[in-house]
Design a protein around this nucleic acid. Structure first.
Length: 154
DNA sequence: GCCAACGTTGGC
DNA sequence: GCCAACGTTGGC
């Protein structure tokens, strides 16, 4: 089993939005970066755990935990001309973009980005590296254990 | 709103 | 294949 960190803009889908959804799950559509796509398509497996991270907002940080709930399958929004994620170069015969389903696991009291950055044990964390923009990044078992065990307040 | 960092595009 | 231009990300 692997661990991940997945960014979501809470204005689009917050941890509370995820918890309130039918089945408490959501297709993680809209990823249009090849590296993040490859993580979903090639490495993620159902049962993997992910930090649910709030980005591009007033209080960026880890807001909860989610579980990968499906293998990757073609992202429907790429074929929808009305979607902002429409990709005219993609075809159903040869889809370019994929998504997994993500299910709510539990909420955490927010672990702010500044807190994560202040911890020496997490200095190597992928998402904290300067210039990182990937919306999906791997988390090591050590990082996962440290954050859930030492930084998560509940 | 600013801006640094990064990925993608497209001309050559 | 190079690389400049452009668009996006995301913290501040």
């Amino acid at each position: 089993m692997r661990y991940w960190l997945m960014k979501s803009e809470p204005a689009d889908c917050s941890i509370d939005d995820l918890a309130a959804r039918p089945d408490q799950s959501v297709p993680w559509y809209g990823v249009r970066n090849y590296q993040a796509r490859n993580f979903m398509r090639d490495t993620m497996r159902p049962g993997d755990l992910a930090f649910f991270y709030h980005s591009s907002c007033a209080h960026p940080g880890i807001a909860g935990i989610a579980r990968i709930a499906s293998l990757a399958y073609p992202d429907a929004t790429q074929f929808d001309p009305a979607s902002p994620y429409h990709d005219p170069k993609s075809t159903p015969e040869s889809p370019r973009w994929f998504n997994v389903d993500v299910r709510f696991e539990r909420k955490l009291s927010l672990i702010p980005l500044a807190r994560l950055k202040s911890v020496p044990e997490l200095s190597g964390m992928r998402v904290l590296q300067p210039g990182n923009r990937l919306s999906i990044t791997p988390v090591t078992p050590e990082e996962w254990a440290f954050i859930t065990g030492r930084l998560a307040g509940q």
